[in-house]
Amino acid sequence: MSGLGTALVFWPTAAIMLVTGLYVFRTSSMARAGLLLLASLGVEGLIFLALASEFLGVLQLLMMSGEMVIMVFFMVMFMADPGGLMGMDMTHDKRRSAAAAVGVAVALALLALLTDWPAATLSGEAPDVRAIGFEVMGRSMFTFLFAGMTILFAIVGGIMLAAQGGRLGIAAPGDDGVAVPPPGRAGQHVPPPGGEEGHAMHGAEPAR
């Protein structure tokens, strides 16, 4: 692609990427946040394509679709307010996280500006596919396998958390919406009065 063509694709897509990326943090609906992130990262694939990195661009388009949709799935599973309809504040520790974000952004910007980027022009039949293939199957193989296993463990752990009644645990008698059984019936768990004392008693309780 010519220099003008690249610029015509690059700048608008970069703007869309930034705006959608920003709106990810301006919404409290999990579905909307996930799909905006998909828009942001999918458009990044177009930037790769405009910069003649065809394999990375196509791969970015392919992977982000699946990954972001799975992320929507998990966020809806784990969040107490997945639709963002109750006005729940999902941020914590704002000052320190803002400081960390600004610090990382400045560091990355400096890295991009100060690095002495090579000015090589790619040509021929997708040299990047071949180069990436040798990189993944060679020097970086261990890194990729390790990352893959780590992600797999995280997925299994997430599903185990979700399967056991969710992040908030299995509802017990006495919780919101769960009836307390009449006291004295054999074999039933009666929630003891009081906080700490009650928790201490759980261990001594006979198995039901």
Binding site: V58, L62, S65
Partner: peptide, 9 residues
């Protein structure tokens, strides 16, 4: 040159 992957994408 990566059209088959683009199809899947």
């Amino acid at each position: 040159s990566t059209g088959a992957i683009l199809y899947s994408a």
